[in-house]
Design a protein around this nucleic acid. Sequence first.
RNA 1: GGUGAGGUGGGUGAGUGGCUAAAACCAGUAGUUUGCUAAACUGCCGUACGGGUCAAACUGUACCGAGGGUUCGAAUCCCUCCCUCACCGCCA
Length: 422
Amino acid sequence: MLQVNVLRNNPQWVKERLAVKHFKQLELVDEIIVLDDERKRIQSDYDNTQSKINTASKEIGKLMAQRKKDEAEELKNQVAGFKIQVNDYNALLIGNLKVLTDKIVLLPNLPSTLVPIGKTPEENVVTKQSEINIALPSNAKPHWDLIKQHDIVDFELGAKITGSGFPVYKGKGARLQRALIEYFLQFNTAAGYTEFIPPFMVNEASAFATGQLPDKEGQMYHATEDNFYLIPTAEVPVTNIYRDTILKETELPIKMTAYSPCFRREAGSFGKDVRGLNRVHQFEKIEIIQIVHPDKSYGVLDEMVAHVEKLVQSLELPYRILRLCGGDMSFASALTYDFEVYSAAQERWLEVSSVSNFENFQTNRMKCRFKDVNGKMQLAHSLNGSSLALPRIFAALIENNQTENGINIPKVLQPYFGADSI
RNA sequence: GGUGAGGUGGGUGAGUGGCUAAAACCAGUAGUUUGCUAAACUGCCGUACGGGUCAAACUGUACCGAGGGUUCGAAUCCCUCCCUCACCGCCA
């Protein structure tokens, strides 16, 4: 959530930034400022009247003690009048605040000046690309055929148990999945990230804090009986560890990592994008999250990108890094880098990681602050990235490493997998 | 699911209608003093939104799990909800 003061200080600039994200309702900016002016006025009236009541009440107490009943009664009558006013102001204030928050919550985060102008994924900027040197056998298959051939992932079975998009990993497939999880966590903790196993369902407040609500309500599975949401990413529960928290500056940066299954309804998706493991309703992901000093967040973003890059490199997968354009960025992000790996059999790039700096957009919603050296309260910055999402890594690994005789396992995974091939 | 207890500031924990933003202690912090790997003493030490100021000082309001209610006045009384703990039941 943006801070009202940011809008007040430079409404024109805010509108320009919002336009980069192709946000249409720019009039909201001015509306919010007007509402905030009103808010201050009403608040002031309310405070002043309430102050009169408080003063009178104390006076009444004294008069009662002095047994001056008549004077006390007279004051009570006055207070009754003030109370009517206070109630009116209060009603106005509540109404005002409701409209104000409803509107400000609609504003996406402002994109950083590094964000490329553009609307569609085609306008993302490739900042780095590795070589693509995959030699596939002549009878190379896409992963949805390979998994059947080797009987390592079963979609039909998942569809029977739950529904489409809930794959069942089996035998060596399950083992490879577990090896990846173990390896990724190991890689992250070795870099100083503390491991967490969070709840896989969150309440409304948590889903709101990281920006999933109200923006992506329909994308999450909702357990209505208890009003819990199945997490779409570990980012939600793990970032919320620091909701309503005041940190010491010396506690920053905070580095966390977590494995979790991720649940996404993916309403409206169709076509080749959803084939096989490319897009599913339940998948595994390891996330890295940092909470940092505002001055450091862009340096940390680079550091996290470098971290994920090393991890992808270690898997020996061709990859590229994209800086997302304004139109392709998420609601809460100020700057996002996506990682894609090349799937040789599908002849396409698959997104496997998204690393973002949210600046204080999430922390403002979450009230995650710290006291700086001058004793001033400041919002921290939050960042997160996938390190990594499993299904597409799984898909690219088996496609790119297929041979006439089976599937080779990359060296770094062999100790975790317990064999060098499938 | 049942029964009981309870939710107060970073922590422990007082406070049962006005003198309480809230004792005391611990932690933290600034300093004084002695000087020997530390102790003693003193000050400061909640958050949010306003006013005020270059910035402070200062000042108004709200907040003692959340939301309602009673009252001139509520941390304190009443109602609803949430959560935590203990025991029982059930269970991986």
